[in-house]
Computed example of a mutant assay.
Amino acid sequence: MLQFIQPFMHKAIQGISPCVLCGVDHQRHHSVCTDCWQKLPWFKNVVQRQEMSIQVACHYDYPMDRIIQKFKYEQQLHFQTLLAGTLTQLRIPKIQAIVPMPISNQRLAERGYNQSLVLAKILAKHLNIPIWQPVSRLAQHSQKGMSRIERLDQIGQQFVIAAQPKIRYRKVLMLDDVVTTGSSLHALKTKLDELGCQQIYAACIASAEP
């Protein structure tokens, strides 16, 4: 009985809770009001990076850039519903699992959470599929002043297969918050190729110019 009551309770709470962006109107779409939802810098298209097609929900423009920064660096986790909600607007192909972009233990200690994993959990529940994390990431260093080849090589060395997984998936979706050059997604895809994945897709909340 409880499983039927919960969706109604959630909808009722949404109807009286203020929008997390304007704080004036009531929530209607993933914790924001209709007006704020429509004013997001929507893109809902594909960008090409590192010979990969990456689905992107929004442009990395105001207010999405500030929302992502606050969520990622300022522990403002109340934005997770909105950010994950933008991903549900994409035409995600039929997949077997979601692979969130891994972060190093150093980054994890600094932030307290992996922002891509937080969003992946919401999207995985929406799609009713598991999260798969067979790849880990070593220490991340600044790439300032590096050439494109040096940057790709350095990032490629950061990703390692954590352990030979007992369960392997052939069709997976890599998930990240923002794509710029696509170097990290390319490095992750390389490791998933090594694990035998046959169809590897990618999706991000926003896209910024390289």
Results as ranks from 00 to 15, higher is better:
Val172Cys: 04
Arg66Leu: 14
Glu74Arg: 14
Glu194Tyr: 08
Gln133Val: 15
Pro63Cys: 01
Leu108Phe: 11
Met52Ser: 11
Thr180Leu: 04
Thr181Arg: 07
Lys44Pro: 03
Ala163Gln: 14
Gln133Trp: 15
Lys144Phe: 08
Ile167Arg: 15
Ser207Thr: 06
Cys22Val: 09
Asp25Gln: 12
Pro134Cys: 06
Pro102Gln: 07
Gln76Ala: 06
Thr86Asn: 01
Ile92Ala: 00
Ser184Trp: 02
Gln14Met: 07
Val56Pro: 03
Ile129Trp: 03
His126Gly: 02
Asn105Lys: 12
Glu209Ile: 11
Ala120Ile: 08
Gln199Glu: 14
Arg137Val: 09
Leu192Cys: 06
Gln69Lys: 13
His30Ala: 13
Val32Met: 00
Pro130Arg: 14
Asn45Arg: 05
Arg111Ser: 08
Lys72Asn: 11
Pro134Ile: 12
Val20Asn: 06
Gly145Ala: 12
Gln106Gly: 05
Val172Gln: 02
Cys22Asn: 03
Arg107Asn: 08
Ile13Asn: 05
Arg111His: 13
Leu188Pro: 03
Gln164Met: 07
His78Ile: 05
Ser183Leu: 03
Pro18Thr: 03
Leu188Ile: 09
Glu150Leu: 03
Asp35Phe: 09
Ala162Ile: 06
Ile98Met: 07
Gly182Ser: 12
Trp37Leu: 01
Pro7Lys: 08
Ala187Gly: 10
Met64Leu: 08
Phe71Ile: 02
Asp176Gln: 06
Val46Leu: 07
Ala187Trp: 06
Asn105Gln: 09
Gln158Phe: 01
Lys144Tyr: 07
Val32Asn: 00
Val179Leu: 09
Phe8Arg: 12
Gln27Leu: 00
Gln80Gly: 02
Ile98Thr: 10
Arg137Met: 09
Ile68Met: 00
Lys191Ile: 03
Lys72Pro: 11
Gln106Asp: 10
Ile155Phe: 06
Gln50Cys: 15
Pro134Asn: 10
Gly196Lys: 12
Ile16Met: 13
Asn45Val: 04
Gly182Ile: 10
Ser104Lys: 10
Gln14Ile: 02
Ala208Asn: 08
Val179Ile: 13
Leu175Asn: 03
Asp35Gln: 13
Gln154Asn: 09
Pro130Lys: 12
Ile54Thr: 11
Thr190Arg: 14
Gln48Glu: 14
Cys36Lys: 00
Val56Thr: 15
Val178Tyr: 02
Leu195Arg: 07
Pro102Leu: 02
Asp65Arg: 10
Gln143Gly: 02
Glu51Arg: 13
Ile205Ala: 02
Ala84Ile: 09
Lys121Asp: 09
Asn114Ser: 03
Ile54His: 11
Val32Leu: 01
Pro93Ala: 14
Leu119Asp: 07
Thr180Tyr: 05
Gln80Met: 06
Ala84Asn: 03
Tyr113Asn: 05
Arg151Asn: 04
Ala57Asp: 01
Lys39Met: 12
Lys72Glu: 05
Ser104Gln: 10
Lys44His: 14
Lys94Glu: 15
Pro210Thr: 10
Thr34Gln: 15
His141Trp: 05
Met1Leu: 06
Leu77Thr: 14
Ala124His: 04
Cys58Phe: 03
Val118Ser: 10
Val99Gly: 00
Ser53Trp: 01
Gly112Asn: 08
Lys189Gly: 08
Ile95Trp: 04
Val178Gln: 00
Ala120Gly: 13
